[in-house]
Amino acid sequence: MSSDSGNKTRVTMKDVARHAGVSQSTVSFVLNEVTDVSIGADTRQRVLEAVEKLNYKRRPQGMARSVSHPIIGFLVDEIATSPFSAITIEGAQEAAWRHGHLLEVAMTGEDAEYEKAILEKWRLQGVVGVIYCSILTRAVTPPEQLAQMRNVLVNCHAEKMPYTAVVPGEVLGGFAATEALLNKGYRRIAFIDGEMWMEAAKDRLTGYRNALTTHGVPIDEALIREGNFLPSGGYKQTLTLLNDGLIFDAIFCANDLTAVGCYEALKERGLRIPDDIAVMGYDDQEIAQHLNPALSTVLLPHREMGQWAVDYLLSPESADTKRVYKLECPLVLRESI
């Protein structure tokens, strides 16, 4: 199964909500014709016009209630601490329903005994397969019961036993972000990373280094700083770069929250983005488009990974040789570079 299946951009309910100037809940209520919620006629019309203009494809409707749908299990360690798990689940649910399957989600909190209990329940129920997902891209040791069912790992990979997994192509994402800055003429590019024990931080840094080397730009280690993937780290490290008297014309922040702090520090010093210093983020969180100027960033394909995992589970390839698939992290260019 080719990783290209994760590269197609599709219109989401979030896009419809943004275009119509309403919340995703409002879009959901309108599309599902919920009548016990007070939504004005004008608002309903805006939503429907946005759906038509964007060519938003709703989930298949009209399946008979009496039909017993096959179930796919979705096991995830955390949901509430990050928006990304919810996006992956939504993508998997859409793909499952498209195939006439239901998605059953369980959050484990990394409790090994709870994982085993859920997997045993699903085994006895005869689920079609199980998606095993981690909130952080990392190596995992899945419980033995997982190998007894058709399975796929999402945003993680197995340390020992062979499992098929799908993860973001972080090295290429870091390369693309840095290359976008280089193509704009920036040469002194600082990099504020996350905590280096995280695979995402290591891989994005590798992509940054590879891009500079490929374009013949010397790597200045003084321009590389370790942050914490939070605004506080972006703010602190941006000020440190400025206070150290280093010359740089762009900053690549390893995630969008880091870029929020970077923006704050630059504006505090009276520096304009991108006129004085350009800023690139990573992961395309909701806040990126609301910063001033709107933040250029890289999209993490969480929705696409969820969709890919379901399509893989239901394909003949799921019995083939196990490997790790990496999905493209596409650039989202806005006004900050």
Rank of each mutant, 00 (worst) to 15 (best):
G6Q: 05
T12M: 12
T12F: 08
R18W: 06
S23V: 04
Q24L: 00
D36K: 07
S38W: 01
S38A: 10
A41K: 14
A41R: 14
A41H: 06
Q45A: 13
Q45N: 13
E49A: 11
V51E: 02
K53L: 12
K57L: 04
Q61K: 15
M63H: 11
S68N: 09
H69T: 15
I72H: 12
F74P: 06
A80G: 08
I87Y: 13
I87H: 08
E90M: 02
E90W: 00
A95C: 08
R98N: 13
A106T: 08
I118D: 09
K121T: 14
Q125C: 11
Q125N: 12
G126L: 11
R138V: 02
A139M: 15
T141I: 10
A147R: 07
M149Y: 12
N155A: 02
A158L: 03
K160P: 00
K160G: 11
M161K: 14
M161W: 03
T164R: 10
V166R: 05
P168I: 08
E170C: 04
F175K: 10
F175C: 03
A176R: 14
L181N: 08
L182P: 07
D193K: 13
W197T: 15
M198R: 13
A201P: 07
K202Q: 15
N210I: 04
H215K: 06
L223N: 02
I224F: 06
F229N: 06
F229A: 04
T238L: 04
T238W: 14
L239C: 03
T240P: 01
N243P: 07
G245N: 03
A254Y: 03
N255I: 12
V260D: 05
V260L: 09
G261D: 01
K267V: 09
G270M: 08
L271C: 09
D275L: 03
A278E: 12
A278H: 11
G281D: 03
D283P: 06
E286R: 08
A288V: 07
A288I: 10
Q289Y: 01
A294Q: 14
L295Y: 10
G306H: 06
D311K: 12
D311M: 03
P316T: 04
E317R: 05
T321S: 12
Y325H: 11
V332G: 09
I337M: 11
